[in-house]
Design a protein around this nucleic acid. Structure first.
Length: 597
RNA sequence: GCGCGAUUAGCUCAGUUGGAUAGAGCGUUGGCCUCCGGAGCCAAAGGUCGCAGGUUCGAAUCCUGCAUCGCGCGCCA
C-alpha cells in the first residue's frame, strides 16, 4: 500500500523510472500550480509565459529549510513589485495548494527567497525507494536511451600505458558508467592508432633489437623506442620465427614484424586495462579504416560538400575555417599519403554513420588544441555543433612524499600505470585519479595513495561501508529483525533525529547527483558525494553512540535505524560500484601491538 | 605572438551551471572511548575567491582588460 502522506492533490503522475528526486518531483508541480493560480487571480501581475521554470535549490545552511525557491526574485522586476511582496504572494498560494501534508513550513526569507521545509515523515517514507530499487537505485532515464559513444585512452600501441593514460582511462570509464546509469545506451570504444610513423618506428625498434639479439652491432636510432619491453618483444619474435628475418629485404620483414609487434603491444595494453578493471565494447583499428577505404570515402564526402581544395605545393586541404577553426588543415600530404587528421575525421564519420546521437572523446590536455578542427570536421560532415563533446584530462604530477618523481621519456624511464597499480592498489589508484576535476592538474602522491589511514579518502570511504556491515552483522547476531521492504509505521515514527533526517535527504539526492554528474561529464562529483555522505554517518554514529544507538532495546527505533543504515549501505554500494571500486564487508586492521616483546 | 586551461585557507582542492554569512581534507591547537569497528568524532584558528572594471535584485561563478603558471600552435601520430 502506498503511504497516504505522499498522495497529494497537486501532484501529477510520474513514472518511477524517470524519477530523479522523489520528493522534488512531487513539490515542483505544487509550485507550478501555485504560480499559475497567482497569475489567474491577478495577484501576480505577470504573463503566464513569463513564469520561469521552477528550480528547487538546496540551501547551504539548514536554517534555510530543505529547498529554496528564487522565483520571487526573478519575477520581481516584471511584476513591478518588491521581491519580498512577490514572495509572500507565492508562499500563500503554495500553502493553500499544498494543504500542509508534505510541507512542514513555507517561509519568506532574506531578499525574497521562499524556503520550503518538508515533513520528516516524507523523507523517511520516500526512502522506501532505496530497497525497492536496490542495486538500481540511482538509475534514471534522463538519457532516454539515446546512443552515446565514449572514446577514451586510445593510446598508441607502442608501449605500456603510463600514468597519464590511467587518469584518462578512469575518467572515460566512469563517465561511461554514469551515462549508463543516467539512461543512455553507451558504447565504450578505443581507437587503435596502428597506422603511420609511430608503429613503423615500433617495428624498426623491434627489428633492431632482434638483430642485436642475434649478435649484430647496430645502434638504436635517436627517435626509436628505447624501453626494455621492446627487447622482450624482439625475444618473442626470435622465439616464434627464428633468425630467418636477417638479410631479408625490408619490404618483407617490415609488415610481418610490425604486425607481430602491434599485436604484442595491444595484448600488453589489454592486460594493463584488465588489471585496472577497464573494459571496452569496441576496438577500432585505424589501419582497418584505411584498408576498408573509409578514409577515401570520408574525403569523398568532404569533396561533395566542396570543402576540399588543392594546396599550392601539392596535397589537399580541408576548409575547416568554414566551421570555426583557426586555419585550414591538410588531409593529404604532398607525397600523396593521408595525414593523421584524415584518418581521424574518417573515424568520426564512421562513428556518425554507426548512428550515435552523441560522441564523447576523452583526450589528454596535449590534444586540446586539436578540438576545434575535430569539431569543425564533425559539423562539416553534417553533425550538430554539439554532437561531439571533448573532455580534456590534464596531466598527473606524480610525487612521492612531496618530491616530484622524474620521468624521462627520452631514456624510456617513465612510471607505468601497472607500476602504480601494483604499488598502491587498484581501488586507490582509480579513486584518486578521478577525485579532481579532469581539466585541472592532479597531484598524485604515491606515499599518500598507499597509506591505509584516514589521510586517504579511499580508505575513509571504504571504512564507512565496512563499519555499517559490522553493525548489520551485530544486529543479526543479536537477533534484531532485518528490515525488509517497506518501513513500518511504528519504525517510521521512531525516526526523527536531525542527523537522521539529514542522512535521508542525502540518500534521496543520489539519483539526481548521478544524473547531474553524467550530464556534466564530471565523475569527481561522485567521490565528493560519497565522502560527504559517509562523513555525515560517522558524525551521527559518534554523536549518539552513548545515547541513541542503532541497536537498542527499543524495537521500533532499532527497526527504523536499521532501515536507514541499510539504505545508506545500498547507496554506498551503488556509488562505489559506479566508480569501479570495491565495497568491502570488513577491513583488516594492521597489527596494533607489533612492538610487544 | 595566437589559442586553451588554471589562479579560492599554510598545502591539496570543492563550490550543485548566477543565490542568502565562501566550504572539505591534510597540517596546526585544544577536546571526546563503561568500544553497535577510535581506521572515528567535536571545536578553534586560518580568506582582498590573482588584479581592475562591467552586466543585475545578487558575481568565486557571466563579459572586457591585465598579471602569473601550465599546455598547445606540423603535410608528427
Amino acid at each position: 500500500m502506498r503511504p497516504a502522506l505522499l498522495e497529494n492533490a497537486c501532484s501529477r503522475g510520474q513514472e518511477p523510472a524517470t524519477l530523479r528526486h522523489i520528493v522534488k518531483d512531487r513539490l515542483i508541480p505544487v509550485v507550478e500550480k501555485a504560480l499559475l493560480r497567482g497569475v489567474e487571480t491577478g495577484e501576480l501581475p505577470v504573463e503566464k509565459g513569463d513564469l520561469p521554470p521552477v528550480v528547487l535549490e538546496r540551501p547551504r545552511t539548514p536554517e534555510h529549510g530543505d529547498f529554496a525557491l528564487n522565483t520571487a526574485l526573478v519575477l520581481a522586476k516584471s511584476a513591478g513589485m518588491p521581491p519580498r511582496k512577490v514572495a509572500e504572494v507565492i508562499a500563500a498560494e503554495i500553502r493553500s495548494c499544498e494543504g500542509g501534508r508534505v510541507l512542514e513550513s513555507v517561509e519568506v526569507a532574506g531578499p525574497g527567497f521562499i524556503n520550503l521545509r518538508v515533513e520528516h515523515a516524507v523523507w523517511f517514507e520516500s526512502l522506501n525507494e532505496v530497497p525497492r530499487l536496490g542495486d538500481a537505485f540511482g538509475r534514471s532515464d534522463v538519457g532516454k536511451g539515446a546512443a552515446i559513444n565514449v572514446e577514451y585512452i586510445s593510446a598508441n600501441p607502442t608501449g605500456p600505458l603510463h600514468v597519464g593514460h590511467g587518469r584518462g582511462a578512469v575518467t572515460g570509464d566512469v563517465c561511461a558508467t554514469l551515462l549508463e546509469w543516467a539512461g543512455f545506451e553507451v558504447t565504450r570504444e578505443y581507437y587503435l592508432n596502428d597506422f603511420g610513423n609511430q608503429v613503423e618506428m615500433l617495428a624498426t625498434s623491434v627489428f633492431i633489437r632482434y638483430r642485436q639479439l642475434l649478435g649484430e652491432q647496430v645502434d638504436l636510432p635517436e627517435d626509436a623506442y628505447p624501453g626494455s619491453y621492446i627487447i622482450d618483444v624482439a625475444k618473442e619474435l626470435l622465439e616464434r620465427d627464428g633468425p630467418g628475418w636477417l638479410g631479408v629485404p625490408e619490404a618483407e620483414w617490415r609488415p610481418a614484424v610490425r604486425e607481430f609487434a602491434v599485436e604484442r603491444m595491444v595484448d600488453l595494453i589489454k592486460s594493463d586495462l584488465q588489471a585496472f578493471n577497464i573494459s571496452f565494447d569496441e576496438f577500432t583499428s585505424e589501419r582497418s579504416l584505411h584498408e576498408r577505404k573509409r578514409v577515401r570515402h570520408c574525403l569523398d564526402e568532404l569533396e561533395k560538400r566542396k570543402l576540399l581544395y588543392e594546396a599550392e605545393g601539392g596535397g589537399v586541404m580541408f576548409r575547416s575555417t568554414a566551421f570555426g577553426d583557426d586555419k585550414d588543415r591538410a588531409v593529404v600530404k604532398t607525397d600523396g599519403a593521408f595525414t593523421y587528421l584524415a584518418g581521424d575525421i574518417a573515424y568520426h564519420l564512421d562513428k556518425m554513420e554507426r548512428g550515435y546521437d552523441r560522441l564523447v572523446n576523452v583526450w589528454g590536455a596535449d590534444h586540446a588544441g586539436y578540438v576545434p578542427r575535430m569539431k569543425a570536421a564533425v559539423q562539416a560532415l553534417g553533425g550538430r555543433p554539439d554532437l561531439l563533446e571533448v573532455v580534456t584530462v590534464q596531466i598527473v604530477r606524480l610525487t612521492r612524499g612531496g618530491q616530484p618523481v622524474r620521468m624521462s621519456k627520452r631514456k624510456g624511464e617513465f612510471v607505468t600505470l601497472r607500476d602504480v597499480i601494483e604499488e598502491v592498489g587498484r581501488d586507490a589508484t582509480r579513486l584518486l585519479f578521478i577525485m579532481r576535476r579532469s581539466d585541472a592538474q592532479l597531484e598524485f602522491d604515491l606515499e599518500l595513495a598507499k597509506r591505509q589511514s584516514l589521510d586517504n579518502p579511499v580508505y575513509y570511504i571504504q571504512y564507512g561501508h565496512a563499519r555499517i556491515q559490522a553493525i548489520l552483522r551485530r544486529a543479526e547476531q543479536e537477533g534484531h529483525e532485518a528490515p525488509k521492504g517497506i518501513l513500518s509505521a511504528e519504525a517510521l515514527a521512531a525516526l526523527g533525529l536531525p542527523e537522521e533526517v539529514d542522512l535521508a535527504r542525502r540518500l534521496l539526492a543520489f539519483p539526481e547527483m548521478v544524473a547531474g554528474a553524467a550530464e556534466a561529464l564530471e565523475p569527481h562529483r561522485m567521490v565528493f558525494y560519497l565522502q560527504e555522505t559517509i562523513s555525515a554517518f560517522h558524525a551521527y554514529y559518534t554523536k549518539y553512540k552513548n545515547t541513541e544507538r542503532v541497536l537498542s532495546d527499543d524495537a521500533a527505533k532499532t527497526s527504523g535505524r536499521l532501515f536507514l543504515v541499510t539504505a545508506l549501505k545500498q547507496v554506498l554500494r551503488n556509488g562505489l560500484a559506479l566508480l569501479g571500486v570495491e565495497a568491502p564487508d570488513r577491513m583488516d586492521l594492521p597489527d596494533e601491538e607489533e612492538s610487544l616483546p
